[in-house]
């Protein structure tokens, strides 16, 4: 029989152990910083991967932690994109101030739409998220006088970053900026998921009935995590608009939501890094396929999706998560 002091020590260690910073995480971020110094030819690509990874982090919060299957997450990304683009074009050209405004506005959009997502079964949620996505895409198309319609929003020229650095055509400042913002949001998301609040969100996914039976208001938890994730998706969109200085209707397209789901699934859900890992893999695969058959690469995306499900998601796509867990030393 173990003593109480021993039990408390063991419990403390176990609870802390889950949220401990792993060596693999440090390596990951060091590699991202190293890329800044050693891969100057790849800034544009790295910038895109990092933004997609941040976008996927947002979906991970909703799906991997909250358990909500969303097929319209591009709504928030695209909304953030347009808000950032319009802000920059019509007065608020400071990138960081733009990010803050975008985060608030997209968060509000998430809050508004979260009430629809709380209701009903998985299919209802899929439909509603899908419809909200299509609806926003339609709005973007109809408001051509504001969004530029099919031609895209041109003339997005942000001010100097922190009053010092200009966004250059090689994407050097862009990548550094995206990396820094993504890192900060990762730190916040990481604290969030290991907090009691974060645990209660996971609890909802595990068993909503039990969660409410221990006195945790399930719907309120989902509303908060959904809005928070929306804000992060919006920031990812804003980063894209600011660093590429252009917004096209494509940011709201359905395939973006579907691709995002694939990215997160490839990288693995529920450990935050899945999105970044998946974004990198996705980009590599996309480039490889585009070299073969540029026009029909969606066919191969489809084939990958079907194959993943046929082989079993947990068997192949959890691989990075599995490796990370091995590195962590806790199963």
């Amino acid at each position: 029989m173990s003593s109480r002091a021993e039990n408390i020590a063991a419990a403390t260690k176990a609870l802390h152990g889950v949220s401990r910073i792993r060596p693999a995480e440090i390596v990951f971020w060091l590699a991202a910083v190293a890329a800044f110094f050693f891969l100057p030819d790849q800034y544009l690509l790295l910038n895109e991967v990092m933004i997609t990874g941040l976008f996927a982090l947002s979906l991970d919060l909703v799906l991997g932690y909250g358990g909500i299957v969303s097929l319209g997450h591009a709504a928030f990304f695209g909304f953030g994109c347009y808000v950032a683009g319009l802000l920059t074009k019509y007065g608020v050209a400071d990138p960081l101030l733009g990010l803050v405004i975008v985060a608030v506005m997209t968060g509000l959009l998430g809050l508004l739409t979260s009430f629809l997502v709380l209701r009903g079964s998985d299919l209802t949620r899929i439909m509603v998220t899908l419809s909200v996505g299509v609806l926003l895409s339609e709005i973007g198309n109809r408001l051509a006088w504001l969004t530029g319609g099919a031609d895209g929003l041109q003339g997005v020229a942000p001010d100097l970053l922190l009053g010092r650095w200009e966004f250059d055509i090689f994407g050097k400042v862009a990548y550094a900026y995206t990396l820094a913002v993504t890192f900060v949001l990762f730190v916040i998301a990481r604290r969030f998921v290991f907090s009691p609040f974060g645990w209660s969100v996971r609890a909802v996914k595990e068993n909503a009935l039990r969660t409410s039976a221990i006195g945790i208001p399930v719907n309120r938890r989902l509303i908060v995590v959904y809005s928070l994730a929306a804000a992060i998706a919006g920031i990812a969109g804003a980063l894209l608009a600011q660093t590429t200085q252009f917004v096209s209707l494509d940011v709201l397209a359905f395939h973006r939501s579907a691709d995002l789901l694939l990215i997160l699934i490839i990288g693995g859900t529920g450990y935050l890094y899945g999105g970044l890992v998946g974004a990198l893999l996705f980009k590599l695969v996309q480039d490889a396929i585009a070299n073969l058959t540029p026009e029909y690469w969606e066919f191969w995306i489809g084939l990958i999706l079907v194959s993943i499900v046929m082989i079993g998601r947990e068997r192949i796509v959890g691989l990075p998560a599995f490796l990370l867990k091995r590195l962590r030393g806790v199963a």
Partner: peptide
Amino acid sequence: RLGLDRNMFRPIG
């Protein structure tokens, strides 16, 4: 029960 479940920033442990 201790009213800490709305804390979003400190680890549960």
